[in-house]
Write a protein that binds this DNA or RNA. Sequence first.
DNA 1: GTTGAGCGTT
Length: 136
Amino acid sequence: MNRGLLSIAKKLNKQVDVPTSCAPNSKLFVAGLSWSVDEKSLKDAFCSFGEVTEVYLVDACDLVRIMYDKDSGRSRGFGFVSFSKEDQAVSAKDAMDGKALLGRPLRISFALEKVRGGPVVVPRVPNTGGTPDRNH
DNA sequence: GTTGAGCGTT
């Protein structure tokens, strides 16, 4: 037995699991956008990875959403891009992350599963004391 | 006319 190899193997056997926040999914969090970047520009930048058909270019991204400030109406500089397949999202991230759009470098990360309104509560009748017999 | 890390419905 070679303990040296075991030691090295143990060192190499490091945890490779990534946090859920960084887990690849079909949604991408794009930040570092310029103030003048709109959804159209972002879509044009990301949907270039779509599949090319005989006639049209199929957009890979299903949804492109940029967060705007409701007070001033200007973009907050970040947005979200949704893809049909995780592979496309990973490819798009790998290809566009670190690149520059409209003069500003992009910071792309996998989006968190954020839902409007926060944690959704299962609709349930607040009557947990058991259903009392109304008239019987 | 401004600012620059971030995780969402403007």
